[in-house]
């Protein structure tokens, strides 16, 4: 069998500094200039591996539009295109 399909837009670990409410202040060393949007995803709650993510779409001080999320189960930050 050939190797499985390669997924696009796999999450990559990110270094995020957030405030007490979980709002990102700094992403990979770049300060956050503005938060454009935030949303919550809860899925597969009926399985043994539920998916819970809080997404943030932010703009850094250098003008880049970045999407990061906090994995609420394992409490880690990732960035995603």
């Amino acid at each position: 069998m050939s190797p499985g399909p390669r997924r696009i837009a796999e999450p990559r670990a990110a270094r995020v500094l957030a405030d007490a409410h979980g709002v990102p202040l700094e992403v990979d060393g770049r300060a956050v200039d503005a938060v454009r949007e935030s949303w919550l995803i809860e899925d597969r709650w009926w399985t043994e591996r539920p998916l819970r993510r809080r997404y943030w779409e932010i703009v850094t001080t250098c003008g880049r539009n970045v999407v990061v999320f906090r994995e609420l189960q394992e409490r880690r930050w990732y960035r995603q295109r």
Binding site: S2, P5, I8
Partner: peptide, 21 residues
């Protein structure tokens, strides 16, 4: 390879498309 959309409407980005021969 080409990009194949599996579930383009998914809320989880990595489920939307895969690379296929």
């Amino acid at each position: 390879l080409r990009v194949l959309e599996i579930d383009p409407g998914s809320r989880v980005p990595e489920r939307r498309a895969v690379l296929t021969p």
